[in-house]
């Protein structure tokens, strides 16, 4: 009696799970496995069908200078965007968490870039960065500085894109910090103040440690975003000039849809997934042990 009732419970459980599981397997797990398998095959064409080449694609990837270039670009992109946007997000959150006139307006203003789609953001910044007629060059012109092709110069294109991404992301991260700050009781600040703690001391010894869970969350998101966000490249640079602003995901897109080498794209995708997984796990395990959760 009890055995069959237990069995029915399991059957019901699985029946409830099945629709979600089918969707997840069909659209997430199967493509991942298929991608992995694809990466072991050569590029097929009308006269030469695709065939198994083992790690051949990986060998050519290791020898591909553009792969290394986009990887290094991506690293600079992550290092340039993440710390600055987190620092900005915390500062903005602390500013708008105070009682000051026009505080809700300021919160809105900081949050606005987040609502805009990346393509729209890129269009706005395209205007900022345009040589001679763009906002930056016009302002520079008032001070007698010469114009500059920010997006056309391999030395300035990546920094230009980094600045734009910070502008876009900091407001988003601010929301999480603001929510976290509002859960920190004001008596803590007062207790510290009575002991003579400066604002900086309080931030360093109390506020920042208490914000660590939020920082971990934001950090993981920011790292993922630095590999996922490439929409702006379509509008601004197409990865150029000379791959100076090309990022891994955009290179995957180019390989698949410009050079029609889906197998090489699959190889790069596997590398991207592995990178993301390793970084997420590392952050989680390394930082988690040092974080105090309330």
């Amino acid at each position: 009696m009890t055995v069959s009732r237990d069995l029915m419970r399991h059957v019901h459980g699985w029946l409830l799970l099945t629709p979600a599981a089918i969707l997840l397997i069909a659209f997430t797990h199967y493509p991942m496995v298929a991608t992995l398998i694809d990466s072991f095959y050569s590029k097929g064409s009308a006269i030469r069908p695709s065939r198994f080449v083992g790690l051949g694609n990986y060998d050519s990837m290791m020898a591909d200078p553009i792969f290394w270039k986009v990887l290094v670009n991506n690293m600079w992109f992550a290092l340039g965007t993440i710390p600055v946007s987190i620092a900005l997000a915390i500062s903005m959150a602390m500013l708008v968490n105070q009682t000051l006139p026009g505080r809700s307006f300021l919160r809105m203003a900081y949050f606005t870039p987040t609502i805009l789609p990346m393509i729209a953001v890129a269009n706005i910044w395209l205007f900022f960065y345009s040589p001679y007629i763009g906002l930056i060059d016009q302002i520079a012109g008032w001070f007698g500085l010469p114009g500059h092709n920010w997006l056309g110069d391999p030395d300035t294109v990546l920094p230009a894109i980094i600045v734009m991404t910070i502008w876009k992301e900091a407001g988003f991260f601010m929301i999480f910090y603001l929510a976290a700050l509002q859960h920190i009781p004001p008596e803590l600040r007062e207790a510290a103040r009575l002991e003579g703690a400066t604002r900086w001391y309080f931030f360093r010894r109390v506020l920042f440690p208490l914000l660590m869970p939020t920082t971990l969350f934001v950090l993981i998101n920011a790292v993922l975003n630095s590999f996922k966000l490439v929409d702006h490249l379509f509008v601004l640079t197409k990865g150029g000039p000379d791959n100076a602003s090309n990022l891994l995901l955009y290179y995957i897109f180019e390989s698949a849809f410009s050079y029609f080498d889906t197998n090489y794209a699959a190889t790069l995708t596997v590398v991207l997934l592995a990178l993301l997984a390793v970084m997420a796990l590392a952050q989680f395990f390394v930082l988690d042990r040092r974080i105090h959760y309330r």
């Binding site: 009781p185 008596e187 803590l188 007062e190 207790a191 009575l194 440690p209 208490l210 105090h292 309330r294």
Partner: peptide, 14 residues
């Protein structure tokens, strides 16, 4: 030269 005990104790949770 004052110290204070708060209603919520204001202990630092971390």
């Amino acid at each position: 030269g004052v110290s204070m005990v708060f209603q919520s104790y204001a202990l630092f949770p971390h």
